[in-house]
């Protein structure tokens, strides 16, 4: 399926019953050089809106929230040693974690690509 977006600049992409979550290219650009990422461990239960991961640049630290509820099945271990991946490829290999959705219906409340593009345009 295509990606969905939150107002906190996370993206989520569903493949079967597992969804991948990352931050958007706009978000990484706002943060600047990412120097540290903390991703959740597999098995962690998160409710929609919970703190799920942390992303830090030199001058800012930000929580990454769970866009929907579910169980984390994998964190992106690659980011620990190479946080710059978030800057280089936020939309793809710089993903944060994968999760099993508790309620796929929660995705309906999120923005699609066009709506997110409009949302970002308004922020600038």
């Amino acid at each position: 399926m295509s990606k969905k977006f939150t107002k906190d600049h996370e993206w989520i992409s569903l493949d079967g019953d597992v969804a991948t979550v990352g931050i958007t290219d706009y978000a990484q650009a706002q943060l600047g050089d990412v120097v540290f990422v903390e991703v959740p461990e597999a098995g962690k239960q998160v409710a929609k809106g919970d703190d799920a991961a942390v992303v830090e640049s030199v001058k800012a630290a930000s929580e990454v929230y769970a866009p929907v509820s579910g169980e984390v099945v994998e964190g992106n271990g690659e980011l620990e040693g190479n946080p710059a991946l978030v800057n280089e490829d936020a939309d793809d290999s710089g993903w944060f974690f994968k999760m099993k959705l508790a309620d796929a219906g929660e995705l309906d409340g999120l923005m699609d690509e066009a709506a997110y593009a409009d949302y970002v345009k308004e922020l600038d």
Binding site: V35, F36, E56, S57, V58, K59, A60, A61
Partner: peptide, 8 residues
């Protein structure tokens, strides 16, 4: 310094 109060 992201551990510290002036940012966190």
């Amino acid at each position: 310094s992201t551990r510290e109060q002036h940012i966190r």
